[in-house]
Design a protein around this nucleic acid. Structure first.
Length: 740
DNA sequence: TAATGTGCAATTTTT
DNA sequence: TTGCACATTA
């Protein structure tokens, strides 16, 4: 094994073989390199069988990359290793041994949309009002409960005494009954059920413990409790556990990640070796110093200071934009300039923001400017309606018990089967313990339906049946083609002749190519595995750098990626950090880590910006610069004016009070002070506001058009509109603009 | 049953 | 502003 390409810390990590090992890997410090070399060295130098090695990641992309890189190092013997995401590994275990706790191996996987659909049914059956117990929060609570290894029964034991939990417990119970009945598992079930399996069948666990003598976990800081326990169980015999992570990049607490897992690793695994990787190979020193200056504001972190031998590089650039359009303008101008003058390609740039909605201003401009760009995230490919519909059909083919998928597509395309017909079917099915699809196979049930609905249901049953007959022998692509022919989905979209329908057709063909790729990749491709793989796949997995486009994404989505030039935009209070972190120190720390992640994506150049005004939820508001700007070491930034970064007052108003249109004050002026328009009206002397609501002034209203103010009473304006008569409007909320 | 309107809320989303 | 979940109507 050639270790000459590794630095001392990296070699130490690679050469540490036995026992628990914690590698604290700063951003860009070559952790994948360490992981792959360590695994290769286990096999090559220490003669460990590949089949004794397990490597777990969070994304398929990371798993594939790791597998490829190891294969590159040691060749195809690496195929024997288990490399995969937590969820994929659990699927594999459950398919093999799930029968020990009563699961068949043909279960389907429900994503969050399926989960939501199933929960809706539970609400309905139990007569629980989703206004009192919002569905979103139920979904969230179920997920949390499962991540904490609390089954409905366990949850009831713990919280049953609390009457406010009664509805939730009922919902959780019913949901769990139904998901089992449907032979489905949600994402969290995959972990939970694996843990239950290990608990119920110790011999099964012992088998895996024996097999996985060397266990590796990437991004350990992002593990939740269930994942933590899973690792703990598997490593319980040999204790050869090698985890890599960075507490400073823990940005998924809200998804259940427990940063204590990494912070307390040495307590959980006594005698653990600790290795810090602090040399960074990605960024220049100015960028790292800037990142360090921000992250060091977080208390309770393991101290770690990134350094590089790449040289100082250039300072970060700073831009204070007038509003989000100005910000976009600046960014796009800079990109074009760098492409023109410094030989950059468009794919060298990433625009990173806190919320998806921020992509809009950039997209609007990039379209006009005809610059190629790609937005990562937003509506995901596999969440698109047409794709989900096809997936539901296919799931139903694999698993006739899947009532959620049945309900999704029974009337897609239209088969004249509405709520009433489904209710009849449900009634019938429930009485006899059948699934909805099975009910459609019973003449007795069909007799309950009206003519049209009956024909539709029978046709539907035929289609699924015909596909099912082929499922074990035909290619997935053949089943797909049959499905399209039988349902006429493509044809129907073609007949619509709208842009949306055309896009859907494109997506369907794209989906076909996903199937083709799956078949080429696998020796024995089958529909069941295709569905699992598809459901467990994310958009992140499909980021390619093949075409020359600017990438736009949230900072979350950028984790693990790197770009020559990064624009970190929207550094404003209540946006980044999010308003939800306002009075929660821990949440603020997580936002700060997110900021750290954003900064450390940059290789050569970092540009940070914020806007003084921003349209959000249709309101144009003044903004404060982010607290993170004040934390940044100004020695690492060009063009920042420390005096210009004026922080909010202690008791800053909850909302900004600007609702007036654009002011003519130059963008270079100081941050606007918040002031109510009504106050402005009274003092009439605020330089940031060049318009004062007073009788006689002309205004333009979004809906009512132009008019003249008759009187002002506090924030209530009485306005005579030219065409719509006299109205009383609140200056704080009405979409008003001054004219003239 | 299907199509259209209305009110409400509004991070991040590795699986 | 956008997206959705629902309620109403044709």
């Amino acid at each position: 094994m050639d270790l000459s390409s590794l630095n001392p810390a990296q070699s130490r990590a690679v050469m540490a073989v036995e026992g628990p090992i914690l590698v604290l890997a700063g951003a860009g410090s070559g952790k994948t390199r360490v992981l792959t070399h360590r695994i290769a060295s286990l096999i090559e130098t220490h003669d460990i069988f590949p089949s004794n090695i397990l490597a777990i990641t969070f994304t398929n992309k990371a798993a594939n990359e790791m597998r490829e890189r190891i294969e590159h190092l040691i060749g195809p013997v690496s195929q024997q290793m288990w490399v995969g995401t937590f969820h994929a590994i659990c699927v594999r275990i459950l398919r093999r041994d799930g029968d020990r706790i009563g699961f068949g191996n043909d279960f389907v996987i429900y994503d969050t949309a399926d989960q939501k659909a199933l929960l809706k049914v539970c609400y309905k059956e139990l007569g629980i009002d989703d206004k009192r117990q919002p569905l979103k929060s139920t979904q969230y609570k179920i997920s949390n409960a499962k991540n904490d290894m609390l089954t409905p029964e366990g949850y009831e034991k713990e919280f049953g005494g609390d009457f406010t939990e009664r509805d939730f417990i009922k919902l959780y119970k019913r949901y769990q009954e139904k998901i089992k009945q449907n032979q489905a598992m949600d994402f969290d079930d995959l972990l939970l059920n694996t843990l239950l399996l290990f608990k119920e069948a110790p011999d099964v666990l012992a088998g895996y413990q024996q097999r996985f003598r060397y266990i590796h976990v990437d991004e350990y800081q992002d593990t939740n409790r269930a994942q933590y326990l899973l690792i703990k169980a598997l490593a319980g015999k040999h204790h050869n556990l090698f985890v890599v992570g960075d507490g400073d990049q823990s940005i998924y607490k809200w998804r259940g990640a427990d940063i204590r897992n990494i912070r307390e690793f040495e307590l959980d695994y006594p005698g653990a070796q600790l290795i810090k990787l602090e040399q960074n190979y990605r960024s220049t020193q100015y960028i790292l110093d800037l990142a360090n200056s921000v992250i060091k504001q977080n208390p309770n972190r393991k101290d770690k200071v990134l350094w590089t031998d790449r040289g100082k590089g250039q300072k970060a650039k700073y831009y204070k934009a007038y509003d989000e359009r100005d910000e976009a303008n600046f960014v796009v101008r800079q990109i074009k300039r760098l492409v023109r003058e410094e030989g950059y390609r468009y794919k060298d740039f990433a625009i990173l923001y806190r919320t998806n909605a921020q992509s809009r201003a950039f997209e609007d401009l990039l379209i006009v400017e005809q610059v190629a760009y790609k937005v990562v995230g937003g509506l995901k490919f596999y969440e698109r309606k047409e794709i989900k519909d096809i997936l539901a059909y296919l799931k139903l083919v694999v698993n006739p018990q899947d009532d959620v998928s049945f309900q999704r597509v029974i009337n897609e395309p239209k088969r004249s089967i509405g709520g009433k017909s489904i209710e009849k079917l449900q009634m019938y099915a429930q009485e006899r313990g059948l699934s909805l699809l099975e009910a459609c196979g019973e003449p007795e049930a069909m007799a309950l339906l009206s003519g049209k609905a009956r024909q539709g249901a029978e046709a539907f049953y035929q289609i699924i049946g015909a596909l099912k007959a082929k499922v074990d022998t035909a290619f997935v692509s053949t089943i797909f083609d049959d499905l399209m022919a039988q349902t006429g989905l493509i044809t129907l979209y073609e007949q619509e002749r709208t842009i949306e329908a055309d896009a859907r057709i494109d997506n369907i063909y794209e989906f076909k190519s996903v199937i083709d790729a799956f078949e080429q990749r696998n020796e024995a491709p089958n529909l069941r595995d295709f569905l699992a793989e598809t459901t467990l796949r994310s958009d992140q997995d499909s980021i390619e750098d093949t075409d020359d486009s600017i990438l736009l994404m949230t900072i979350h989505a950028s984790k693990g990626l790197e770009f020559p030039v990064v624009f970190l935009v929207g550094l404003e209070e209540n946006l980044f950090p999010s308003f939800r972190a306002a009075d929660d120190p821990e949440a603020l720390e997580e936002e700060r880590r997110l900021c750290y992640v954003g900064i450390t994506r940059a290789e050569n150049m970092l540009v940070i910006s914020h806007a003084m005004n921003r349209t959000q939820y249709g309101r144009y508001e003044a903004r404060f610069p982010s607290v993170f700007l004040t934390e940044m070491d100004t020695a690492c930034i060009d063009g920042i004016d420390p005096a210009g970064v004026e922080m909010p007052h202690k008791e800053k108003p909850k909302q900004s009070y600007f609702s007036i249109g654009k002011s003519s004050v130059a963008a270079s002026k100081l941050v606007p002070k918040p002031m109510k328009p009504t106050e402005a009206a009274q003092t009439g002397s605020v330089e940031n506001i060049d318009f004062v609501y007073k009788p006689g002034a002309k205004v333009m209203h979004k809906v009512f058009g132009s008019g003249m103010i008759i009187s002002v009473n506090g924030s209530i304006l009485t306005i005579a509109f030219d065409n719509k008569g006299i109205k009383k409007l609140d200056a704080d909320i009405a979409p008003l603009k001054p004219i003239g």
